[in-house]
Design a protein around this nucleic acid. Structure first.
Lengths: 357, 357
DNA sequence: TTGTAAGCGTTATCAT
DNA sequence: ATGATAACGCTTACAA
C-alpha cells in the first residue's frame, strides 16, 4: 500500500510538474486503464457511464488538475461557445455598458466574449468581421461603424447562417434581430418637454444622417414641433460630428445666428455639455436664456451644473437582451426564426438644464 | 473556353452556395489538383512554393471566399493568438480605457482579446481563470478582484508558463510583469498640493487596505503630512468602499466630527464628487471652506462645478504597455526573462475644488 | 456500460 | 518545389 502510494505520487509528479506537456484524456485513460472515450464521456457527465466510473474519472482528473482542451473540442464539435461583439469605441459609457451586459449574460450561459472596436472605421470593421469569422465565433453582436455604408462584409455571417444581432446602430439592409432604442420617441419626448417648458424657437444639433439613429431623433424633433403647431426652421437644424470641439462650434453658430434659438435639443450629452460650457463662458444663462436637452445620459450629465436633461438609454439591458436573442438563435439553429426589431424604451430625465424656474 | 467557364462557375456555385459546409484547403487542393500541404503553404506565403502556384492558389482561395479555420490551426500549432483580459468591472472609465489600450495594441499585433469581468468576486475570478486556461489563451492581463486574497487560481498560468501581466492591482505574491500607477506618489502629490494651498487639517477617505493601491495612496498622504511637519490625525483617516452612498456617509462623518478637517484627499473621484455634492447641499463652500482632491480623473471630474482636482491615471497607455509586455513574453517564451514592475507616471491635475482664491 | 476508430481542418516532418 | 502522412486532443457512430 505504502509502495503504491509512492508510485502514485511519482506518477502524479511526473505528469503534473512537466510544465510543457498537457494532460489529456489519454493520459487519464492510460493511468486508469480505460479508454479515452469513456474518459471523455465521464468528464461530460454522460449518463451512459456508470456513476462509479464517472466519479472515479472525475476525481482523478481533478487530482491531476486536468483542464479540457476546448480548442480540440471546438474543432470536433464545430462550436466554439464564443461570441464576438463589435463596437465603435469600447471606452465610451454607453458601449461599455452594453459590453458589460453582453458579458454578464454570456458568461452565465457559458459563452466567451471576444471584443473588438471598429473605431468607427469601415476597414477596421471589415477586418474584424474576417477575424471573427475565422475564429468561428458562434454569433456576433454589432453596432456598426459610422463610416460603414455598405455591409457586404457582414454577409460572411449571414451566408453561413451565423447568427447576427445588431444593437443601437442597425442597417435596414440586413434582415436579422435588432435591438434599438426608440430614437424617434426620444427625439419627440426631448422636444416636447422643451415645448412644454415654454420654449418657442427650438434648435437641433444632429449627427451624420447616414446613421439611422440621428435620422430618427431628427424626425421625432420635427414631429413634436409640428404637433405643437410650431414651424420647422431648417436654419435651426445642424448636422455634424458630435464631439466636443465640433459641437461647440455648431452651438456658437446657432446662438450667434440671426434666428437665435431659445432652446436646443442636442444629439448627445457631449454636445449638450459643450453648449452649456459655451454658455457659461459667454454669460448666457441655462436654462433661463436657453434650454438644453441632451441624449444618452452620460455619467457626467447628472453632476454638471446645471445638470443636463437627457434621454436615458438602457445600455446594460440592451447588451443582455442582444445576447439573449443571439444565444437563443445559436441554440435553435434549425428552427425557422422570425426576426424581430426590439425597441427598448428610453426615458426622459428632466434636470436643471431645461426647467425654467 | 466558354464551356470551361460554365463548368467553373458551376463548381464555384456548388461550393459557395452551400451555407453549411466549410470550404477547406482540401476543397481548394482538389479543384486545383494539387496537394493540401501545398495549399496550406501557399496561403501562408511560404517562399518554398513558387510564386506562380502561390498566386494561383491565393487567387482561387479569394474567389471561393475561403476563410482559414483558425480553430484547426490553433489546435495544430498550440497557439491561439488570443489573450484574456480580466477586469473587476468593464463599465468603469479607467478599466474600459485599459481594455481599449489592450485591444488597440493586440489587434495591431494580430491577437484577439477575450474580456471577462470578475465583479470584484473571488469565485468569479477563479472560474474565469479556468475558462481562459481551457481556451488556451496565449497570455493573460489581469487586475485582481477586491475580494481576492489568495492567488492559487492563477497558478494555472504560472505553472504552465503562460505569460501573465498584472495591472493596477497586483499581488506581491506572484512574480511576473506588473504595470502599476505610482499610487504612493499620487497620494503624496495630492496631499502636498493641499498643503501648499494652505490647508492645515487634511483628511483622507481611503479604500479597503487589502488592495495595495489604497495602502500606497495612504502612505503617500502620511508622508506628505510628515514632510510638511503636520501631525497625522488617525481620526481623520477613514476606510470604506468608495462608492456614492458609502462615500457620502464617510464624508459626513468627517465634516461633522469634532476634529473637522479643512481639506480632504479622497481615494477616488467618485468620493470627491460625493463630498462636493454633500457640501453643496449643506451650504459648505468648496474650495473656500474645504479643499477636495480626488483620484483617477473620471470624465465627470473636469465638468462638475467646482471641477475636481485629481490624479490622472494613464489607462489607455497602461493597457497598451501591459499588452506589449505580454506579447513580448509570449513570443520569446524560451528566453529567460527578468520581470519588471513598471510604474506609470501619474499626474496631478489642479482644478477648482482645491484652489483657494 | 465500455471500447474502437474515424474525423474535425490545419500544420509539420519526411520524402521525392 | 511539391506530396504523403501523421499528428494536435477531443467527440461520436458503431460495435461489442
Amino acid at each position: 500500500m505504502e509502495k503504491f502510494k509512492i508510485i502514485f505520487i511519482f506518477v502524479l509528479q511526473t505528469i503534473c510538474m512537466d510544465n510543457k506537456k498537457e494532460i489529456t484524456i489519454h493520459d487519464i485513460a492510460r493511468e486508469l486503464d480505460i479508454s479515452a472515450s469513456t474518459v471523455s464521456r465521464a468528464l461530460n457527465n454522460n449518463p451512459k457511464i456508470s456513476l462509479k466510473t464517472r466519479k472515479k474519472i472525475q476525481d482523478f482528473a481533478l487530482k491531476l488538475g486536468y483542464r479540457p482542451n476546448i480548442i480540440a473540442s471546438n474543432l470536433r464539435t464545430q462550436r466554439t461557445f464564443t461570441i464576438g461583439i463589435v463596437v465603435p469605441l469600447i471606452n465610451r459609457h454607453f458601449f461599455s455598458s452594453v459590453i458589460s451586459g453582453v458579458e454578464a449574460y454570456a458568461s452565465e450561459a457559458g459563452y466567451n466574449v471576444i471584443i473588438a472596436q471598429s473605431n468607427d472605421q469601415y476597414d477596421k470593421e471589415t477586418s474584424i468581421a474576417h477575424s471573427l469569422y475565422s475564429n468561428r465565433v458562434d454569433g456576433v453582436i454589432i453596432s456598426i461603424a459610422m463610416e460603414s455604408e455598405d455591409f457586404t462584409h457582414l454577409s460572411l455571417f449571414t451566408n453561413k447562417s451565423i447568427p447576427l444581432v445588431f444593437f443601437d446602430r442597425a442597417p435596414k439592409e440586413i434582415y436579422t434581430h435588432k435591438i434599438i432604442v426608440d430614437d424617434y420617441a426620444g427625439g419627440y419626448k426631448a422636444t416636447k418637454h422643451l415645448i412644454d417648458q415654454g420654449y418657442k424657437k427650438i434648435a437641433h444639433i444632429s449627427g451624420p444622417l447616414n446613421l439611422q439613429i440621428y435620422k430618427d431623433r431628427l424626425q421625432g424633433y420635427k414631429d413634436a414641433l409640428k404637433d405643437a403647431g410650431l414651424v420647422i426652421d431648417e436654419t435651426l437644424i445642424l448636422h455634424n460630428r458630435l464631439i466636443r470641439e465640433v459641437a461647440t462650434n455648431a452651438f456658437r453658430k446657432l446662438i450667434t445666428s440671426p434666428s437665435k434659438p431659445d432652446a436646443c435639443f442636442c444629439g448627445n450629452d457631449t454636445t449638450a455639455l459643450s453648449s452649456i460650457i459655451y454658455c457659461k463662458e459667454n454669460g448666457i444663462k441655462v436654462p433661463e436664456d436657453i434650454g438644453i436637452v441632451g441624449f444618452s445620459n452620460e455619467p457626467f450629465s447628472e453632476v454638471v451644473t446645471p445638470s443636463i436633461s437627457t434621454i436615458k438609454q438602457p445600455g446594460f439591458e440592451m447588451g443582455q437582451t442582444a445576447c439573449e436573442l443571439l444565444i437563443e438563435q445559436i441554440e435553435n439553429k434549425s428552427n425557422p426564426i422570425d426576426f424581430q426589431t426590439l425597441t427598448m424604451p428610453n426615458e426622459l430625465i428632466v434636470r436643471g438644464s431645461s426647467v425654467r424656474k
